[in-house]
Structure formats: structure tokens, C-alpha cells
Simulated assay, not measured.
Amino acid sequence: MNPTGYPQGHALLIGVANYQKVSGLPDAILNDVNDVAATLASPKCCAYAPANVVTLLDADATRAAVLKGLDELAARAGPDDTACVFFSGHGAVVGNDSALVTVDSDLADFENTSIGSSELAAALARIKAKRVLVFIDACHAGGAAISKSLTDGKGHEFKTGYTQNTFAKLAVGSGRALMASCRADEVSAVFTNARNSVFTTVLLEGLRGAADKSASGLIKVFDLFNYISEEVPKLIPDNQHPIFKADDLEGNFAVALSQGGKKSPYSPETTGTAREADPWSVLEKVLVELYPFGPKDQEVWSRAGGDLSRLQFHPTGQAAWHAALRTLKQGGGGRNINFGSLLKTAQEDFSNHPQLAMLQAP
């Protein structure tokens, strides 16, 4: 039991970018796993015991190793604990079902070298923790559309992704829930040169406190998904919609501590103080004030090196700035724009503005 009264959290995080026999994925996938692991284990965030957070990356994420990792998770997670499983990598559609593609999966012998949904669901069912949450970030598109087929150059081919049937199967059971990065017919976006996928970027924000809007000191499952489902479409309007599945979920259970169990700086009464220490939040507030019509106002985005065609239309300036800065933070919005160039352009326009004068690039 955590000193705050929250039961132990356990996690198995799996990421594959460099496959042995099928096409690879952006390196952001590996960052996703490492960053989620660090956030879960941080005493200032989710406060899981570091020994309870296990990662399997690339060569270590074989079929045998993943199944062993799930068995070990089931062995160490007690009934009163919380267990999280995170997978970032390829999925493959097999009829009306789908399978998790491990680093050593061979399309020529796919049934025996991948992890089918029934086998994966059975492994999850062996976890006796009362709270089990599965995250799947798959069907990645790195900067541009990628092939929706998984091939090995030898005539074997599968459609990438996961079916709704698989998602439902993995969420079966009391206290079980699943969050996936996108719908079955969508792709999970990764902006060029971004550290994380869009889904995992927002997930990390939520786990670091943004999802605890009531300042309860806990990250709760419904609150986390509500945050993710609201924020991801702001970055990828109309193109990516996270999904949530739960078969028998009675309450809004706690996934982890928020801010180590302390009051969240994202609570309404502190939004104007602690959160403003974040340079991105300060810049957004100032830009909304100075350029109320959004990034197109006075051509500030273009003059800073950005490309307006890379941004989505929003009906208000505030919404447009919020989405534009999220996109910029992920490496999007134009090849030649960054936090520094946008700040410099605004400083040139408003040289006497006190907050702009004090602001520095993160």
C-alpha cells in the first residue's frame, strides 16, 4: 500500500519500432514506452514503485517475452492493485479478429509467431488485480500516410490495425478497460520529428496531472479518457478519435496517483498561477490576447516560419491558438517554425509586452 493510501500499481509496457521481418515504425514508439514508464514510476507523478514498471523494447519484445511478461505481471499484481498494459507497435487484422505483432512475428507463419486476440485476452484474464487498464497505440502514420498493409516482400500480406471485436475481447471482465489511439479505420498520428505519437503525448499530459481536473490527487479512468478524447482531436481534427471499451466497469476507478497524490496544479483555482510556469501555457495566453483571430492574425504564424495550410480551421482564435501550439509542440505546423521563432516574432511586434520580454524558449 502506498503511503497515501493508494494500492500498488504495476505496469508492463511494450514497444516495437524495428521489426525483424516486416516494415518498421517511427522511433517515437520507443520514446512512448520510455516516457510512459518514467511517468508511471515518478514519485512526482503516478508514483508506481519503479520495480513494478517493466518495459520490453524492440529486440526484447518477442512473442515469448511478451507472454512471459504478462504472466509475471499476473503473478505480482495482487487483487487490490492496479495493472496497466501498454503496447505501441503493429497490429494485424486476421478475418474479423486481429493480432499483436511482436518483433519476431513472421507473416509466413503468423498464427504461431504473433499473439492472437484470444491468447492475449486469456493472458489478461489471469491478472487478478481489480483494476486493469490496457492501452493500445497502433496504426501509426509517421508524418504522412503509410501503407495500411503489413508485408514481408515474399507475398504474405495482412491489413494493419485492430478490429472492434479485438478491442471488446480485451476489455472483458470486471474492472477491465481499454483505451486505443484511434478507430479501426483511422491511423495513429506521429508528427515528423516529434518525440511521441499524438495519442501518447496527450496520455502523458493526463497522467502527469492534466486529467485530474477536480484536484482529487488521483488519475481516474473516466477522467483520463475524457481528457484524451477531448485533446487528441484538437491536434488531429476529424482524423483521429481515441476509443474506450469496458465490459463491466462499475466505477471511475483510480489508475494512479496525480502529482504523487498531491493537489494537482491543473485545478481551476490554480490554473492562473502554477500552470503559468509552463512557457507554452504562458505563450498561448499571450498570443490569444495579442492575436485574437488566431495564427492567421497579422500573418504572425507565416512570418515566424510556419505554414498555415498545416493547421486546422477553428471557429475561435482561442481554439485555433490552442490547437496550433499543440501541433507546434509535436513538431508540426511548418518546417521553419518553432517556439523560439514564434516568440521572437511576437516580441518584435510587441517589444514592450512584459510577459513576452520575460519568456524564454523551453
Rank of each mutant, 00 (worst) to 15 (best):
S149D: 12
D223Y: 04
N336E: 14
H353Q: 11
G332C: 10
A180L: 06
C46Q: 01
L283M: 11
W280C: 09
A168F: 03
S229W: 03
C139S: 08
R195C: 00
T55S: 11
C182D: 01
L257T: 01
V66C: 02
Q240E: 06
D106W: 11
N352A: 09
R131L: 07
A320G: 00
D81L: 03
C46R: 00
P362V: 10
L308G: 14
T270Y: 10
L325D: 04
Y291C: 10
L40E: 02
L107G: 06
L178A: 00
K130F: 01
G15C: 04
D278S: 14
R303K: 15
D32C: 01
A145T: 12
T201E: 11
A38V: 00
V132E: 13
A108K: 09
G153W: 01
S114W: 09
I146W: 08
H140A: 01
A246S: 11
D60L: 05
Q164N: 15
A123K: 09
A61N: 11
A125L: 05
V221P: 07
H10N: 15
D307G: 10
G294V: 05
P265S: 05
P79C: 04
F339P: 15
S214F: 01
F135D: 12
E284I: 00
G260W: 06
A49D: 15
A324G: 03
C139M: 05
L257F: 05
A51N: 08
L25T: 05
R208D: 07
L325Y: 02
A184H: 00
Q312A: 15
P295A: 11
E348I: 01
L203Q: 08
A37F: 02
N2T: 05
A99W: 12
